[in-house]
Structures are given as structure tokens and as C-alpha cells.
Design a protein around this nucleic acid. Structure first.
Length: 645
DNA sequence: ACCTGTA
């Protein structure tokens, strides 16, 4: 082996040490799994010679090694042709380039695939379209990144290697695009993509709003781009700009993350426009991958419009496993009026922050969701005053507080999400910008103020806690105005009324005997509001009417809002309600549920994968049972050919 | 004048 190395150019000599290193790592890890020790011998040449793609000798060695491994795998492992469930096996079976897999197993230390990953990776590697229904926080990002990156390498084997791939990158030959509904999510995906591509020649770029377009263009023109992770607005901006020199004439994969969200009003038009700048799928064959937590009418339409016949439907929502919203305990707090909300949050935060022993000592880390930006801003400001700047020796001392919403600069947003991500204990006052997909570790509480717009929103927000097997709890704080609608809109949720807090029960509009502790909290809250910029209060007042657009009894709404201004903010005269309040609101149609699922089934003949990852079989929705008569093993081995590197 | 998503 080393005689071969000596023949290589001097410039590559530094690879020798890394080769030695990776061999060593490999050897140690294999010793621990006796069944795999035998694989060490044929395995080594593949890794050791990864810089010599050009040599025919390399190909022979690699092919022989792959063959030997595959045979060994078939000898050793019992289900030899089932779906791959270990990342390591993706390389051993020649399905994914070792440079990609090694990063995942060695640097990222990932071993076993999650359910979503098993299903999407096995399926999508073959090139078919996949519509995956999966909860957030289940690792679906890797589920789509691995197959699209691997398929890029298939199309252009030089991309498998770092040195050769880099030289060939161009800005006008993007091979795959991932679209996400928020900037933060796009960035989170881009970070992961860059990580797993670090051993390959695949160049990843991220295009989101709020950043300097020029700088991004220059970087992309200089470095090129194979995989673009983007938000709709900026992507449209770049593709439609004739001077950007960024194009995707050979686009082979399009991924829509949070597809249900991307199909909502506002986004959908933009996506349609973007598609006009992408090559016609009839001319350039394109793989479509969609990820969606729910199947509503919009998603069905998307499926009908863009998925190619014969696409796969991977239902990764396990029926026997409780969904997020059943697994996480949820408490419902009904307050007397809007004026009770802020002091109630104060009471709750104090209680949770000061009693970590009730959570096995886990520090309090909460996201507090509001329905409008202005409410987020106000709550953040009020808490800052309440806590005396979160300094030590104050009741909320030790907490770090952040606010995040779209009216913040992108710099501010990044600072907030990074800050909260790395904080051991803290509060994040947030709009729905973080409701989906964002991964903040160790969130102990998700507190929602006011009824969320949709049940879907409620579930997504709730999903920010209880991640990675950790515990968490949800709190929903509502006023009597929302009581009825909560019962209707959130009837599926196991909300349990909570009576443990004092402040919510206090009628602040009448004088009476109030528990001393509650009185103190209310007093400090009102006092804090008096030190808030009046314009901020006005904004929040107007924002409230926006959040309550759905609420038809406008007189009661105005009355309740006035109480807030009077007793919660100590204003002598409440601000005027916005004129639009008297315009009247429109109702909205529902969707989703069982009917939508059936519609998806009818939309195409599909294979439905529904069983546990470890023992994957095909089970089917009745109508398509006959069409999908082939077992999963055939499907995986038949469509996805074994690759050699 | 509810949230996201280009300037």
C-alpha cells in the first residue's frame, strides 16, 4: 500500500498522515465489534487511497474491496437485503460514498439511523420522488441531505473527493436546491450540509434574506455551488437576477422542507414563481423530495402538481408511538383578563426558575410564544425591567433572556437564536419564526400566550421541547374570550387545567383581598409597564386586535383590551382601537385529517412504508395494496444499484 | 396592522 503512495505527487503527501490516522481510527472501532473485524482487511485500501480516484488500479482495488465487504456483510448480517439502518452500512454496501459516511460516523458520531432517515435514505437513493410525513426533531435533515448529495456524486464521481470537486465547482451549475420557510431553519440545514460535505468536493451555499446579497453572490461566484439551501424570497431574487450568474440548468433534486408551510398563502405564489426559473422537469429529470408534518389540502395539491407518478409515500408517523402532543404534559391556565397575562408569566417563570429540583435539577429554559411581534417585543421589555436586567441577586438572576421575530435585523435574530441555543438557562420570547424545525437543546418549557392560529402551530411550537428523548412540558395561557375556541381548535390536545398559580385568578379591576405574593407580582408587573416606552405599549395594543381577528364579538374584545390598558398598564385612557376592528373578519376553511390522507393515496399509486425501522416491511393502504405488491427488499435492492467507489 | 418569506 505504501509503495503506491510513494508514486503520488508531493502535494498530496500530507494526505499520508491523515490516511494513517483514519486507518487507526477504523481499526480501533472495529475491534470493538467482533463480527466486523473481518471487514477491516478489505476495508482499508478504500479509505487509504481516497485521493487517487484517477488511477485505474484504485478502481480495481476499491471494487474488489467493495465486493469483499458486500459478501462479508451478506455473510455476517442476517437481513442481508433489507433496508440499511446503520450509517456505516451505507458505505459498506456501496450505497453512499465513504467520504460522506465517514464524516457522519467519525466526526458527527452518528451510528444508527432514525426512522425517517431509514425510510427516506433507502428510498431516495434510488432517485424516486419521496413525500415523507415526519415529525420535526427526528433527523429528517440528514434524511434528505444524504441521498441528494450521494446522487450528485453518482452523476459526477469527482465530487466524492475534496480536491477534485472543489476545482470544478461553478456558480451556474447548481445540482440541488433545498427550500425552507424560515431563514434560521435554512441556516441550520446549511450548517449540517456543510458538515457532512466536508470530506467531499460538494460545495454548499446558503441564500437567505437579511444578509448581504452582494457578499453572498461574490462568495458563490468565487467558490461555486452544487447544493443551495435557501428561503423563497432570496432564492427568487437570485435566480431572477440576470447578472447573478447563479443558475441551475441541470437541477437534479428539489427539496421542500416543511412543505405544508411552504404551500400556505404568501409562500405558494413565490414557490410557483421560483419554479419558472428552474428547468422544465420534462426536459431535465428532477427528483422531488418533500417533508411535511401534516397532510392537508395544500400538500395534496403539491403532490399532484409536482411529484412524478410512482412516487413513494413514507409515512413516518408511527401509529403506536404517541405523537409529540400526547407525550408532553400540557397545562392550561385561564386568566381573568389580558391584564393578568404578564404577571402570570412572571409568577410561572419565578416558580420554575427557583424550583429546578422538581425537574431533577434541570435548569429552566423556556420559549414563550406570542401571536404578534408587538406582544413579543413588549413581553421582552417588561421582563427586562421586571428582572432588573437579569442581574445576579435578582429573583430571575441567572436566566438569559432573548427575543426573536421577523422585525428584528437578521444579525439580531442570529444573535438571539445562537444565544438561546447555547444558554443553559433562559427565556426566549418568540413569534412563530421559531415554531417549526428549530433545534434548541434542553428546552424544559414551551409557554404559549393566547390561542395559536392553527392547531398545527400549537403542535409545532410544543415540539420545541421534549426533544432528543428529554422531558418537557407545555403551558397555554388563555383568556375567557378564547375558552370556547380552545375547546374547538385544540380538542385533540390533552390539555389539563392548572390551578397552581395565584395571579391568573385575581380580578384586577375590583379591589379585594388578594394573596400577598400575587399582589406583589402584579404590582411589579404594572410598575414595569409604566417604565415602558408608550409607543411600544400602543403597538402591542394594536397587535392584540390583529391576533384576535378571528374573534367576532368586537365589543367584548375592545372592552377586554381596555381593561388591559387600564389595570395592567395603569393608563388613564386606553389607546384607540385600530379602525379595521370595525370592518369585520372573514372565516377560514379547515382541511387535513383522514380525508386528506385518502386524497394523497388517490393522487398516485404509492408504496406506504409503515413499519418499524429495524424490521421494515411494506404495508399498504388498502387501495394501493395490489399496485405495491413488491416487498421492500426488492424495492431497495432492485432500484438502488450498488455503487463502487 | 396575525406569522413567515427579497430590497
Amino acid at each position: 500500500m505504501f509503495s503506491a503512495l510513494r508514486r503520488c505527487p508531493a502535494s498530496l503527501s500530507r494526505n499520508v498522515s491523515s490516511v494513517a490516522l483514519s486507518s487507526r481510527v477504523l481499526r480501533t472501532s472495529l475491534v470493538q465489534t467482533p463480527s466486523a473485524v473481518r471487514l477491516a482487511v478489505p476495508r482499508l485500501p478504500v479509505i487509504a487511497t481516497q485521493a487517487f480516484h484517477q488511477s485505474a488500479k484504485w478502481y480495481q482495488t476499491a471494487e474488489a474491496a467493495a465486493e469483499a465487504e458486500a459478501e462479508a456483510v451478506e455473510d455476517e448480517y442476517e437481513p442481508n437485503n433489507g433496508p440499511v439502518t446503520k450509517f456505516k452500512d451505507l458505505a459498506l454496501r456501496g450505497l453512499v460514498h465513504p467520504n460522506l459516511v465517514n464524516t457522519i460516523t467519525n466526526s458527527m458520531k452518528l451510528e444508527t439511523m432514525t426512522d425517517v432517515q431509514t425510510r427516506t435514505i433507502n428510498e431516495a437513493l434510488s432517485g424516486v420522488d419521496v413525500m415523507a410525513q415526519a415529525k420535526t426533531g427526528t433527523g429528517k435533515t440528514l434524511g434528505f441531505l444524504i441521498p441528494i448529495i450521494q446522487r450528485m456524486i453518482d452523476a459526477d464521481p469527482q465530487l466524492g473527493d475534496r480536491v477534485h470537486g472543489y476545482k470544478r465547482a461553478r456558480p451556474d451549475d447548481i445540482r440541488a436546491i433545498v427550500i425552507s420557510p424560515t431563514r434560521e431553519l435554512a441556516e441550520q440545514i446549511a450548517v449540517e450540509a456543510k458538515k457532512i460535505c466536508s470530506g467531499t468536493g460538494v460545495i454548499v451555499q446558503c441564500a437567505v434574506g437579511g444578509t448581504q446579497k452582494r457578499a453572498m453572490l461574490q462568495k458563490t461566484q468565487r467558490e461555486g455551488c452544487h447544493l443551495m439551501i435557501a428561503t423563497p424570497g432570496r432564492l427568487m431574487d437570485i435566480l431572477s437576477d440576470p447578472y447573478s450568474r447563479i443558475e441551475a440548468p441541470h437541477l437534479t433534486a428539489l427539496v421542500m422542507d416543511e412543505a405544508d408551510r411552504l404551500m400556505e398563502q404568501g409562500f405558494q405564489e413565490e414557490i410557483d414563481k421560483i419554479k419558472t426559473f428552474l428547468p422544465d422537469p420534462d426536459q431535465v429529470e428532477r427528483q422531488n423530495l418533500m417533508f411535511s408534518a401534516t397532510l392537508n389540502k395544500n400538500v395534496v395539491r403539491l403532490v399532484k402538481d409536482t411529484m412524478r407518478p410512482g412516487f413513494h409515500f413514507a409515512k413516518c408517523v408511527n401509529e403506536d408511538e404517541a405523537p409529540t402532543h400526547d407525550r408532553i404534559p400540557q397545562k392550561l391556565v385561564e386568566v381573568v383578563g389580558f391584564e393578568n397575562i404578564m404577571p402570570t408569566l412572571y409568577e410561572l417563570a419565578l416558580k420554575m426558575h427557583l424550583n429546578p429540583q422538581e425537574r431533577n435539577g434541570r435548569p429552566f429554559k423556556a420559549i414563550i410564544y406570542f401571536n404578534s411581534t408587538s406582544e413579543v417585543k413588549l413581553a421582552a421589555s417588561v421582563f427586562y425591567k421586571l428582572s432588573g436586567g437579569f442581574k445576579r441577586n435578582t429573583p430571575l438572576g441567572g436566566l438569559k433572556a432573548f427575543e426573536i421575530h421577523s422585525k428584528l435585523s437578521q444579525q439580531g435574530r442570529t444573535r438571539a437564536s445562537e444565544g438561546f441555543r447555547f444558554a443553559t438557562s433562559g427565556l426566549l420570547f418568540s413569534s412563530d419564526v421559531t415554531a417549526r424545525g428549530m433545534d434548541f437543546p434542553n428546552v424544559t418549557h414551551v409557554i404559549q400566550v393566547g390561542l395559536p392560529r392553527e392547531a398545527e402551530t400549537y403542535v409545532h411550537r410544543l415540539g420545541r421541547t421534549g426533544r432528543a428523548g428529554k422531558e418537557g412540558e407545555g403551558w397555554l395561557i388563555i383568556t375567557p374570550l378564547e375558552r370556547h375556541e380552545v375547546k374547538r381548535r385544540l380538542r385533540e390536545m390533552p390539555l389539563v387545567k392548572d390551578e397552581s398559580l395565584e395571579v391568573p385568578k385575581v380580578d384586577m379591576s375590583v379591589s379585594g383581598v388578594i394573596p400577598e405574593e400575587a399582589a406583589k407580582l402584579i404590582e411589579s408587573s404594572v410598575e414595569a409597564h409604566q417604565r415602558i416606552n408608550p409607543e411600544e405599549l400602543q403597538d402591542a395594543f394594536r397587535g392584540l386586535f390583529g391576533s384576535f381577528q378571528w374573534y367576532s364579538d368586537k365589543n367584548r374584545l375592545i372592552e377586554s383590551a381596555n381593561r388591559l390598558a387600564e389595570f395592567g398598564w395603569a393608563m388613564s385612557t386606553p389607546p384607540p382601537p385600530p379602525a379595521s376592528v370595525f370592518g369585520g373578519g372573514r372565516g377560514r376553511g379547515g382541511g387535513g385529517g383522514r380525508g386528506a390522507l385518502e386524497a394523497v393515496v388517490e393522487a398516485a399509486e404509492m408504496v406506504v412504508l409503515e413499519t418499524a425501522a429495524a424490521d421494515l416491511e411494506v404495508s399498504m393502504i388498502d387501495e394501493v395494496a395490489e399496485a405495491a405488491a413488491w416487498p421492500i427488499s426488492t424495492l431497495t435492492n432492485g432500484i438502488a444499484p450498488r455503487r463502487t467507489f
